[in-house]
Design a protein around this nucleic acid. Structure first.
Lengths: 347, 347
DNA sequence: TTGAAAGCGATACCAT
DNA sequence: ATGGTATCGCTTTCAA
């Protein structure tokens, strides 16, 4: 007794020609039906549709793309590992684009070199995607120019460039928000821990948040000692180390610390716990971003609408793709302070 | 004075023909160079390569795909929002596939209906991807058959099917691990909170973990009262509610609870805190998965190698794509207990 | 070693 | 309203 073959359909793959033949029409007609083009008799349309169903036919996206010059797919360049916030943005982006029947190809960037390669490849010819969103990575002028030359719409999300539509927040204002929250509670000795300005990706949010923090303090006539400002690689453990440095020298201890990202704030929280510091009684901590974990651990933080930012970027991209002029070159999202359990008046 | 046009390259896009013409060779030769095919004189190859560089040419993936029948892209179907663990798996997967020069298209699935649509579309003709990985979603026999018919390799990650290579863990063993950790600490009244077996996606890990838990308890002659076993939607807040139910009736309070996923365990932790329960003194909590947040909050949990599972799935997929026979139809990853701060001997 | 030409599977224009 | 055909940009025979 022979083994029953698993493959049900050993025949040639069904193409538009198969459908046309079977339905007794030309390929042009099938194509019209497929694309809802006008000028097809109702009776014909029905017959074709039926044949399509019988054959379980679906047009090759590849062939369609080659023919039309559009692939219905967009690229998302994301620092996947380094930024949890990027994942939440991506979520909003993918959802909105899926709803619009676009595919999203994911380009994880964790190394400087990858970043360069990806941007170069995506902008060039040969790339499959119709457009791209770049998350948290400011492109250089040359890179932008390449995209422009290629005629590919690009949206910047959490990054900015004069020639590209961007969805951002006002980091300076956000830094001010954080500092003022602490000031309002009565804190005067407020430290800052953030990302190094010399980071390989060109992230600038941390420095801007620092500026906002310094401005707010200045308004209150406060100039923090240089030792209150610690910057290092955007990493939880590095942030913990920086926090510990605050306790070395004969430095007067801060009563509060503003950490420029939740990821780093989480590290600070851990380090503070390790020191036996009661939070918020002995030390207030405020983060920035409001990633999901922030809520889980009760971290007070400056909230930016991460998922919504993804949706907005998607919308701008869809606008650009449909040839509509961008509503605004620069879209700035609102910030609020999510007050939770890590901030309180100083002892 | 005229405005300087931004567009540097108003000319027709550069194709393989452009390169061929410019280099004074046929397109076939350029193609051979592009693909490292043998039989090209070194001198010719150099000239072509140079021309390619001058023109900043890159072959159209679309055209190449249409011609070869392969697109160098694979689909990843992921319950993005419902499972944080899925993101970590995806990370490993994307990394490995990027290294192998494949594109990954992301298919977020949050609704039952989306799940069905996506699987159907990806298996059918017309789909761009050469293969697919499906994360945490067990496909039906019909769905599997469609993939098989289409000749598209599929790997299941955190899911299982007799006809498909799968990367999984032994959930029953894992449940046992969790229970035995608590038993070893001296606990006897151990509750269980998990995902509902009737979930719309067909996730089965929770029931299996429950089985392992029950078996381990039975080995110690313990049969937990039915009220100790709570199941509901896989959601943090739902888990918190289920936990609260443990305190209703005249039920003898458990000294420990095994929660079938970290996401749910985080909810339980919150609910316990809200009740003023000191953890682990008054109550031990152990989760499952070891997502990143688990470490941050100090949750004791059963650890499965999430990112590595993604890498393994990628490897299996690459094997399948290169026609090598799958090394094993079923790959089972190791589990360990990450002991942190939420478990201790009962008071 | 190389060039020419036939597909790959769609779309879109041109007749009819 | 519909069929036929050129076209998209590449790979891959087939000759030379």
């Amino acid at each position: 007794m022979e083994a029953v073959p698993i493959v049900t359909n050993p025949s040639r793959p069904v193409t538009i020609a198969t459908v046309a033949r079977r339905a007794g029409v030309g390929v042009g007609t099938v194509s019209r039906v497929l694309n809802g083009a006008p000028g097809v008799a109702e009776k014909t349309r029905t017959r074709v549709l039926e044949t399509i169903r019988e054959l379980d036919y679906a047009p090759s996206q590849l062939a369609r793309g080659l023919s039309t010059g559009r692939s219905s797919s967009v690229a998302a360049v994301v620092p996947f590992l380094t930024h949890p916030s990027a994942v939440e943005r991506l979520r909003g982006f993918v959802r909105a684009l899926t709803a619009a029947r676009y595919d999203v190809t994911l380009h994880d960037v964790e190394l400087r070199e990858q970043r360069d390669d990806r941007l170069r490849a995506l902008a060039g010819p040969g790339s499959t995607s119709d457009a791209a969103v770049i998350v948290s990575l400011p492109p250089t002028d040359d890179e932008v120019q390449r995209f422009l030359d290629a005629g590919k719409p690009v949206i910047l999300l959490d990054a900015q460039h004069p020639l590209l539509p961007s969805v951002v927040i006002d980091d300076v204002a956000g830094g001010g928000l954080a500092a003022r929250h602490l000031l309002a509670l009565g804190h005067r000795r407020i430290a800052f821990i953030g990302d190094t300005p010399a980071n390989p990706y060109g992230f600038t949010s941390s420095v801007n948040r620092r500026t906002g923090y310094l401005d707010a303090l200045a308004e209150h006539g406060i100039t923090p000692p240089p030792a209150y400002i610690k910057e290092g690689e955007h990493d939880r453990l590095v942030a913990a180390r920086l926090f510990d440095e605050l306790f070395q020298d004969g430095l007067e201890r801060p009563t509060a610390v503003f950490v420029a990202s939740d990821t780093q704030a989480l590290g600070v929280l851990g380090a503070a716990r390790a020191r036996g510091l009661r939070i918020p009684d002995q030390l207030s901590v405020i983060g920035f971003d409001d990633i999901e974990t922030a809520e889980l651990v009760g971290l007070t933080t400056v909230r930016q609408p991460l998922e919504e930012s993804g949706r907005r970027a998607a919308q701008l991209l869809l606008d650009a793709l449909s040839g509509r002029p961008p509503e605004a070159a620069l879209e700035t999202l609102d910030l609020t302070v999510s007050v939770r359990q890590t901030t309180a008046p100083p002892a």
